[in-house]
Write a protein that binds this DNA or RNA. Structure first.
Lengths: 207, 207, 207, 207
DNA sequence: GATGAATGAGACTTCATTCAT
DNA sequence: CATGAATGAAGTCTCATTCAT
């Protein structure tokens, strides 16, 4: 029995090692620079072994994306469960994206960009994980609307999508051009992001 | 004389044929799917011939990106020169992105995403073309602020970046998930985009 | 255990097979005719496999050059360790070049000509291997001078360079025009080489 | 009549332009870096035009080699006709190689190395040009022998070959490693070459 | 004669995936 | 289970030569 468990544990460890190595590689070479030779080297496993745990490179990517989404969901969930006002909650959720972006840059990229390159193939679980994120944001926005703070002509689901899209856009800009924008215009990343948040919140608030 | 002109015209035509074939390939296989074998096949030229017109694959990409940016600049410029109120102008500019996205999807992708993968290497001309776009939007937002319609605590350059980033984010979402969002939530692309625009405009307007 | 050893042996065999195929190709097409397609074909390996053993074509060339140099060094070392008079030693060393040239023509070419096309890039090990050859010849010439048989106005290092350069020149001539010279003037390669040797030795000897 | 002559003169000019451009290219990129695209650009002729004057890249190379040989022959001839002692003549001829090497480095390379890569195909004229060089050196050595200054056991033709081969070897070493030898051992190129010459001359002289 | 656009074989290298051990 | 050697298609780019105009 315990042998079986140990084996399972080891198997799990191997999976983690692979994912961790893949993360390292992508942090170094970018989202499209995932390379199984390097993953094998970094995880100290044989290349063939990778295929015992993941049926393709694509699956590694999908698994990491799933985790990334789940990780963000966790953050959102924490905030959702806090006992604070709906606008503050909204602010916190928006800010959580920025924190996520700074602390888990690869996860952020996966959450933002995975869909762009794999629109058609998403499997059930992966798809669900995406819905979950939307749903949480949707709830928070709905609550805010119900509390009377938000314009009633705004459809909460539409606003959810708007928020998500704009947030991703803002953070991608920061990633790609953040330092240039600071150098050239003296606009710090934090200022840029806060500005975005304030505009969005005033944008959906009642006058 | 006319022979020379004809030759030049033909040369220009070939260049266009290559760019057109490259566009086709990228429309089919994505921004990262540009493949010179296919370009050669589609343009009915030998592979080597491509290198008479562009010194590398990268140059094809850069050329298309430059054109894409110039094309968007032209649209923005038209609007900038119209004799209409500053808020209407702003609205028109934002909408122009959506039109651009619908009519020239590849160009839109290039304008949105080229930087993400070539941040460091941009040459003078290409860099300028990017600045030009920002500058136009900046002017329009500045004008609106000077006319007293926009919050004074908003820095125009920051708002310019916010607008650009959010617009790109919104349109990328529409590209990737537009039809799904419509199917599932009944939110049409147009509605989604308009909502974004209204939120942004109310977000920067004086109350 | 023995499995591991066998695998290592097989790996080593493959490396050798590649080097051997490369040697064949170069013997047939010349020093500059090394072509990985042919090497793959001759070694009955896939092209990609070559890159498991050598990181580039250049590395194959460098490896063969290193071996060639080491092979010549071994010959020189044997002679250096013989207990014979210094002039006889010198004669034997010079002759060893000719033997090397006849028995390992590709190695000889690599030893003679590799530098000409890679002057700047030589790595540590390769560079060392070149020094080693010079050093041995230098020692032999120095010994001869110390024994009083050689002109004292001759700097041993200069003479070393002179000997090396002239030997290579002579053997390159024999390679390229040897048979023609025999046919036309009835001068056998051996005679030509011996003549060179005698001239050189008398040239550095005390009168 | 004069029209025909003008045309011929122009044709000759074009040929020269091509050869001159080819020389430039090879000086910059080495003996094996001859590239017809660059030749066309430098000579301001169309690529196709090159083929009206030379039937292949190879022929350009052969023509330049012929000229290089003729140029060296001219130098040797001058010396041969001088009224000086046979040993001084020999010294001068040897030195002429060094001068040739310094002043016309590409020509020197062609004279030294062309054969190595084209041993089989040499045409009549080219072959003759090579013979001519040997013949001159042969005469000079023969004269010296007849004057009683040179060992009688030395066959003049063999010595001719020895001299040529050793000289080429020495100058190739200087070309490839000259500066390194200076840096490392403090042996200047001139010293190295002179040393070679003295060794050779003493080597063939009567004791 | 002159042009130069076009060709296309061929070179090197990469990498996801397979499979015998 | 694990290995890692082997594969081979695919990709970018070069360049001597040809040929329609």
């Amino acid at each position: 029995m315990s042998t079986i468990k140990r084996k399972e544990r080891e198997k799990e460890l191997r999976r983690e090692a692979i994912l961790s190595a893949a993360t390292d590689v992508m942090l170094q070479y970018g989202l499209y620079g995932l390379n199984l030779d390097l993953v094998a080297k970094k995880s100290q496993l044989a290349k063939g072994t990778l295929y015992l745990y993941f049926k393709s490179k694509e699956e590694i990517l999908a698994t990491l994306t799933l985790r990334a989404r789940q990780s963000l969901t966790t953050e959102f969930l924490k905030i959702h469960n806090e006992e604070i006002g709906p606008i503050e909650k909204l602010r916190k959720v928006i800010n959580a994206n920025f924190e996520f972006f700074k602390k888990q840059p690869l996860y952020f990229d996966l959450v933002s960009l995975y869909e762009a390159n794999h629109s058609l193939n998403e499997e059930e679980e992966l798809y669900k994980s995406s819905e979950e994120i939307s749903l949480l944001v949707f709830k928070i926005i709905s609550d805010a609307r119900e509390s009377g703070l938000i314009r009633e002509d705004i459809d909460p689901m539409t606003a959810t999508m708007n928020l998500w899209a704009s947030t991703v856009g803002t953070l991608q800009l920061i990633k790609v051009r953040g330092s240039l924008i600071d150098e050239k215009f003296g606009i710090k990343n934090e200022v840029l992001f806060n500005s975005f948040m304030e505009i969005f919140i005033q944008g959906i608030s009642k006058k």
